[in-house]
């Protein structure tokens, strides 16, 4: 199988290309609220003085579930491609915000609220001559430093 060049599903969600991508949020100069993805106004205080802010790449799992059935459109997976269940969760980034993201883990037994998580990217599907990717969080299991070695 040919290795296709990767492309984010949407520009501006995370730094790319990058060895360690970071989510691109925004921070309000007025009230310090941080949101993801970046916005031009603050949804908390309606302030207009808002700057791009790179988010922490590590956090903790705040809540989670598993998407076990194939969603209807507008889910973008091409019809002929096999659907694999995926985890979904909110990851709390200390002092910043809680980001909703796909999880690399889809086994309920291996997910728990409070576990440490790290940002990564996952492939979605082929789009023309590219493979689309999106941001996701992967669990950091105790005693497992394989991620750090990547």
């Amino acid at each position: 199988m040919t290795i296709l060049p990767q492309r984010p599903i949407e520009p501006g969600l995370f730094t790319w290309p990058a060895d360690q991508p970071q989510l691109i949020g925004s921070r309000c100069a007025g009230c310090a609220e941080i949101v993801f993805p970046a916005r031009t106004t603050c949804p908390r205080c309606m302030g207009m003085d808002v700057e791009q802010h790179l988010l922490a790449t590590r956090g903790t799992l705040w809540t989670w579930t598993i998407q076990g059935f194939r969603p209807k459109p507008p889910f973008g997976l091409p019809e002929q491609q096999h659907f694999e269940p995926f985890g979904v969760g909110y990851i709390e980034l200390a002092g910043q915000t809680r980001v909703e993201a796909r999880l690399t883990e889809s086994d309920s037994a291996r997910l728990a609220i409070g576990m440490p998580m790290e940002l990564t990217t996952v492939p979605l599907w082929r789009d023309g001559d590219h493979e689309l990717i999106t941001y996701a969080f992967q669990p950091i299991y105790e005693g497992d430093d394989s991620h750090a070695a990547q």
Binding site: E10, W64, Q67, F75, V88, G89, R102
Partner: peptide
Amino acid sequence: DWYAAQGLMLTPQFFAM
């Protein structure tokens, strides 16, 4: 669109979480 395309726009996910 990108949010829905990656399979996050489902109310059951929200209620479960």
